[in-house]
Each structure stands twice: as C-alpha cells, then as structure tokens.
Design a protein around this nucleic acid. Structure first.
Lengths: 339, 339
DNA sequence: TGTGATGATGTAAAGGTTTTCATGATTGAT
DNA sequence: ATCAATCATGAAAACCTTTACATCATCACA
C-alpha cells in the first residue's frame, strides 16, 4: 500500500551494531542480554520506529495471539456486554479478538474455521451452544483448538463453560417472590429444548418445593424467551382462567411481553400482578413498571471466560468443567408485597 | 499446542507430483495451470486436508486481510448493530474483523495501533470520532492506513465518513410533527460539542423555517444525549413554564428521559404531549407510549462503510468524502395530532 | 525446417521473525 | 596456572507462502 517500507529487525541490528538474534533477545528476554547492549538496542528501536512484524512472528512461533469469538448474533445486547469483558481481558494479556457472526448458518460456521485451521486464531470462544458445524468431520477430527463456551453450554462435548448460575439465580428470584407473600406464582418460558430455560425452571421448582408450595401445572407456560412469547403466555393464562399473583419470567424479554399484555388489559401494575424477570437487560430499568430482575454479571462472565481460555492455551488443565457466577437480585418496582 | 502438525504446501506438492509453485497457482490462479494438473492438486489438497497458512501468506503478501474496528464502547447497542453490517460485508469479501474497545482511553487507542503498525490489520474503521491518539505523532506521521469513519465523523482530517443523514432525518422528523398540527415544538439535546446534535438541531430549524414557524429560543434545551439529560430537560421546561405541545428529542435515549419525566407527572401521553425520537433503538417499540422515531439503517451503514474501506484498500479513490444514508420515519404511538 | 510466440511448470528468492547450536570471552574453583 | 562452568553474542536454519525468472515443450506460421 502507501505504507512506506517499515523498519525491520535488521535495520535495528545494523544501527545498534549487533546481530538480529541479539535484538530479538533484547526485546523478548531482556535479562539475557548485557545492560549496555540492551541500551543500544532500545535506542536503535526508538530511532527507527521499529515494531515487530506480527505476521513473521506468528509464522515462526506458530501462534497468532488471536482469539476467535463465534456468536450467532453479534447484535444481541446480551452478547455485546459479555464481549466487553472478553475484549478487556484479552487485550490486557496481549491478545486480540476476532469476531465471527454465524447467524446459526452452518456454512458460515464452517467458513470461520479457516481462522483456526490457517493458524490465524489460537483459541475459540463459543456463544453458539454447539461445536461449529464442520468440526469433527473428516480429517479435522481431534484437531479441536482450545475453546470455552459462554452463555450456552455445549452438550455432549468436553468444552468448559462459563456463565451465570441459572438454577441458583432462578431459585433466588422465586424465593424473593415467596418472601413477598406470593403463593400462586407462574413460570413463563418453559422449553425442554433450551438448557437455560430448563435450569431456570428447575430453580423455580426447587424454591416452591422448599417453601412447601405445591406446583400447579397450569402455572407453567411454554415460551421461547421472546417478547412475543411472553405476551402470548399472559393471554393464555386469561383464557385458562387460572391466574397467578406473580409471574416469574424466564428472561426480561419475556417479562416485557407479559407487562405489555397486562398493561393492554389495563391492570394496575404492580398492584394487581407482580412480575419478575431474569438477565437485567438495558431497558429493564426503563419499562413501566421498572423490572425487578436477576442481573447477569456479564462483564465478569466475559473476563472469566477469556481468563480460562488463555489458561488452557498456556497448557493448564481446567480445574472445573464449568464456572458458574452468581446472578444478583435487582429490586425495582415490578414486584410488590401481596396478601 | 496439541495441534498435530498441519499439512503444508509441500506435502500437497509431493502428493500431487508437482512443485509448490504449481500448487500455489492451482489455488490462487486456477486458470494458469493445466486441467489435469489442477485435478491432481485438488485431490491432493482434499487428501491432506491442507489449508494455506494465513501467517505465511500474509507475511509474503504484506497484507493480512484483517480490518481493525476501533470503538469507544463495544457494548453500545447502536454500535453492535452496525457491527453486524460491517462483519457481514467483510466476511463476504474474505476479510476478518478485529475489534478494539478503547473506552476513550488514549493509552488503549495507542495500544491498538500495534495491530496496524505490525501489519496485523490492513485498514481501520473508526467509531471514535477522532484519529487514534498516537497517530501523526513522531515517526508514524503520514503512515496512516486506509480508514473510514462511522457514526461520528472525524473533524479536520481527510477521513471518509459513512453514516445517517442527520440533518435530513431531523428535518423529516420535525416536519412530521408539524404535519400533525404542532406549532410549539421543543428541541431537546442541543450540544455545540457534538456534531451529530448540531446537525439534528439544524434539521429541526430548517423544518420550522420552512413552515414559517418562528423559533422560540426557550424551546431549545441543552442535553448530551443521555436518558438523564432528557429527564432534566423536561423538568427544566416546567420550571420555565414555557411548554411545547411536542418534544423532538435528539435521540431515543433522550426521548425516553422525557417520557419518564412526563409519566412521573402523570400526564396522559400522547394525548397531552407528543414525543419524537431519533435512532430507533431496541426498546423504543416497548416503552409506553411506543416511540415514533427515525430509524437508522444500521446494517446498511455497516455494509456501506466496509464496502468503502475495501475499495480504498484496493487502491480506489473515494468519490465522495461522505456517504449519507436516509433515516426512515417509524410511526408509533408517541406522536399524535393536535389542535 | 526454422522461428517466434504461447503455455505449463519448476527453481529459488524474499518476506521478518525466533531459536538452536556454536563460538569466544569471562569467571570461579582448584 | 588450568579447567570447567557461565555468559554474551552471532550464524544460520526454520516457519510457509508467493512470485519473478528461467526452462522446456508445443504450436502456428512462414
């Protein structure tokens, strides 16, 4: 390009009057070179404006110091906040992050593997909940790079997972509703296909059982986690004519749907119904009534995941197969005392 | 690492019984090699599972096929949706995207330059609104890589800009309010420091002027674009006792603040006040009343920016210094007819 | 048949590092 | 004074490509 030719290690060596090997050592293992020599090299580097060519370095070292992040939807706000944590930690350790938006398209997933197989990335962070399509096929078998799953665990695979403790979080959320006097508590968002939903339902059940409250199957409504599914679920409850005093929703998006439905029916919230969410996404504090919810420590999840991946990369064995971080109860206005 | 040794071009050449030069050509300029030879090479590649080593390739070609994206806040939802467009277009053209979260920290900005100076990235997308701190200093002067600014133009620099047409969008928004019978229209979010705010205010003024409505300086309120600033602005109007019938807010976050303030004062929206936003961020459709706003074509902005950068990279001269995309009026419930 | 052009392939250099191994110098111990 | 150990440095190989240049065969045309 228009780049004028950059200084190479040879230019530095010439200017400092030493060999390129010495320059390399002065940069990477400063203790192994004499003080005086190091001084000369340092000065020569400053004078030439030398920066080491990452490509040559990666070629030689067989590692790129890059991490590939594979996510089904980069636009998802839940993703982007974790990304901040991932990026922060990576950058701190001298790694760069490469991002791949798969849209759940197998072709794109496969396509991104070239970054791995061509040595452009040393490790992999998976938001997809499954191994990239194309792994474990033909010759690539067994050449899986170090990787860590975030957000969504990878079933049937030895991939360490970092995420929020959904079971425990859901239990705490439900217990909060119980502590406010609620006995008829709906769970909105049952889905056997989604591990996250399953775990949150488990936590809900555990809390009810712990309080000696019998579980009413009519209080458990299917849902896929979208706002629309929350709206539909609330409507369904009116049809069934089995009304709770509180809705525990599998996530904030679902809770929003429930609120929209109840507002449309002109109920006075939270006086007539309490709503509890999970995730604490950005608009949860702005909706009316503002949403009481469980906050995911997204930044820390990102940091922890990257930390784990870099440890793996350094050859350490993971001590645990999963790292679960605690969700935090955020009390706002959508839950109120009853009875 | 645990990676077993990968096949190199030499393995392929040996298996196909040709030289490595021929293999390289078969891959990169297939027409330049005989049909029969190409067939043999293709088969050998399949058999060995060969993928070309990107590092060696980049080293030799002096280009990495990577784009660095520098953003002050990767968690910002406005950013992440543009990112999807950037990524889509890049990926389609065989480029990868590297992301750098600067948090407006000069040290981090400088740090990310190593990706450029070490040849790890060929071009730069800037969300920061200014050249990275450290550019144009000392020796690096004049070694600016191809770059494109997005979201926020870079003042006093020859950096092509891709973004929404703020002036025109604000004009359309204000005209919409006028078409609904509004005459007393406030502008919330004046800021001389922010180019975006300045342009939107310009559009607002033009629309009023076009309709022959005199501008009342009490109707123009300062604000930095945050939700809190919107709330404060609305409160200020009550103090001043100079009330409009409609608020045109510099962005949706500000509009949200205005809505929160009006709701808290128990006004019936939109009957008593109309509110118009700008941006169409995710929760705008969920707030009550749902927000009438101007939608930024974020995906297309991303695509257009990447397209432009890749053209620059290919040596083309940009035809225009800026590419402005039209915002689209999204009519929801927060604006109603008056008078 | 001879000549020049065209086409397919191979040889080798270049790209910029890191690192092994060798070399000499210096130090410390005997 | 001798020998071994340590230390600082340099020469050169290796990492894996792409590509300029050379070679050789083939073909068309005179």
């Amino acid at each position: 390009m228009q780049h004028q030719k950059l200084a190479t290690i040879e230019d530095v060596a010439a200017l400092a009057g030493v060999s390129i090997a010495t320059v390399s050592r002065a940069i990477n293992e400063p203790t192994k070179v004499a003080d005086e020599t190091r001084r000369k090299v340092t000065e020569a580097i400053a004078r030439t404006g030398y920066t080491t060519n990452a490509m040559a370095r990666s070629l030689r070292m067989r590692r790129s110091n890059m991490i590939l992040i594979l996510a089904p939807d980069v636009g998802d706000p839940n993703f982007s906040n974790i990304l901040v944590g991932l990026e922060t930690e990576a950058s701190k350790r001298g790694y760069g992050v490469l991002i791949g938006n798969t849209q759940n398209d197998p072709a794109r997933e496969t396509d991104y593997l070239r970054f791995i197989s061509s040595n452009q990335a040393d490790g992999l962070i998976l938001f997809t909940g499954h191994l990239p399509y194309g792994f474990g096929q033909d010759g690539t078998e067994g050449r899986l790079p170090p990787m860590v799953a975030v957000n969504e665990p990878v079933p049937n695979a030895e991939v360490p997972f970092v995420g929020v403790d959904n079971f425990e979080g859901a239990r705490i959320a439900t217990e909060h509703l119980i502590s406010q006097g609620h006995r008829r508590i709906a769970f909105v968002g049952r889905s056997s296909a989604r591990e996250v939903n399953r775990l949150r339902e488990e936590g809900y059940r555990r809390a009810l059982a712990g309080a000696g409250i019998a579980i009413d199957p009519r209080m458990i409504i299917d849902g896929d986690g979208t706002t629309e599914s929350g709206r539909a679920a609330a409507e369904l409850m009116f049809v069934r004519d089995a009304l709770p005093t509180a809705f525990f929703c599998v996530n904030d998006a679902t809770a929003l749907g429930v609120i929209i439905s109840l507002n449309a029916r002109h109920y006075d919230l939270p006086r007539q119904f309490s709503i509890m969410g999970f995730d604490d996404i950005s608009f949860s504090s702005f909706v009316t009534p503002s949403l009481t919810t469980m906050k995911q420590p997204r930044h820390r999840i990102g940091e922890a995941a990257m930390e784990l991946l870099l440890a793996l990369l350094a050859g350490e064995k993971p001590r645990e197969q999963q790292v679960l971080l605690r969700a935090e109860l955020i009390v706002r206005n959508s839950v109120t005392r009853v009875g």
